[in-house]
């Protein structure tokens, strides 16, 4: 589904990714772990099409298409979803409006009819339960005045509504208490299907107790320095990242 080959990328002339290769197949859950500043959020944002990074070499193939040649909205319409680490607040635009607008954009891109507000309400009802959100949240402005946990749950709600093929969760666990973490992870697990894939970007192993990965990759200094199964995450939990990092050259 996703094939990243020797990806190099920079921001403001500073190289952040220094040759990433990664293949994600349908039905798989991949965890990307690593210390702060390792480039894992950058990777997540590049997959989603953030304009702030320059891909200097390498390729990303998604469903047989050149992902890097697509605008962010085209990627979304093709089934790529990024759950933001810092979801943006949009005053004056209700969650209901925003979600339906996004939902309809995706339908239009697939040549399907748009749904009207009443039909959409029915769709929402079930999705709200998934993330244990109250229907009143739909009438509030997107993320405006939401708590940290509400923002993250709102991201998963969007994911549930948009039903992506490839979901990338960027530090979705950061700043969550254990209840919110359980709800968010429960939502992600419920959305798992044999024909979609999930990339979980996280600093901590904690989330991976709830979302069990098939593969774990450790990113450091813009490279994947170790890949393994879920046991790698436990090892990292016990030992930290230091044992994997190259010694500092003097």
């Amino acid at each position: 589904m996703l094939k990243i080959t020797d990806l190099h990328a920079s921001a403001s002339d500073k190289e952040i990714l220094k040759g990433i290769s990664l293949t994600v197949n349908a039905g798989e859950v991949h965890a990307i772990m690593g210390p702060n500043g390792s480039g894992k959020s950058t990777l997540a944002q590049i997959i989603a099409g953030h304009p702030g990074y320059e891909v200097t070499s390498g390729t990303i193939e998604y469903d047989g298409k050149d992902l890097l040649d697509m605008e962010a909205e085209e990627r979304a319409q093709a089934g790529v979803f990024l759950a933001f680490q810092y979801p943006v607040e949009i005053p004056g635009v209700t969650n209901a409006y925003f979600l339906r607008a996004a939902f309809n954009e995706l339908r239009k891109a697939r040549g399907e009819e748009e749904v009207d507000p009443m039909e959409f309400l029915d769709i929402m009802e079930e999705k709200l339960k998934l993330v244990e959100m109250d229907a009143t949240m739909m009438q509030r402005s997107v993320n405006a005045g939401f708590s940290g946990g509400e923002k993250k749950r709102n991201e998963i709600l969007q994911m549930a509504v948009l039903a992506p093929k490839l979901a990338v969760l960027d530090e979705t666990d950061s700043g969550l208490d254990i209840d919110a973490l359980r709800i968010v992870a429960g939502g992600v697990n419920a959305l798992k299907r044999p024909d979609n894939a999930t990339i979980v970007v996280t600093h901590y192993q904690r989330l991976l107790n709830y979302i069990v990965p098939d593969f774990v990759h450790v990113l450091a200094g813009g490279r994947i320095i170790r890949s393994g199964g879920k046991e790698l995450a436990h090892e990292l939990e016990a030992k930290g990242y230091d044992w994997l990092l190259e010694p500092v050259s003097v």
């Binding site: 989603a48 099409g49 953030h50 304009p51 702030g52 605008e71 962010a72 909205e73 990627r75 979304a76 319409q77 979803f81 990024l82 933001f84 979801p87 943006v88 949009i90 005053p91 004056g92 635009v93 925003f98 607008a101 996004a102 954009e105 995706l106 891109a109 402005s141 969007q158 948009l162």
Partner: peptide, 23 residues
């Protein structure tokens, strides 16, 4: 970028954010 990443294209995203600026 947030709006685009939800499939809402450039023109529409700009319009929505302009409104949000007033809101």
């Amino acid at each position: 970028f947030y709006l685009k990443s939800r499939g809402i294209g450039g023109e529409n995203a700009r319009a929505l954010l302009t409104y949000a600026f007033a809101a």
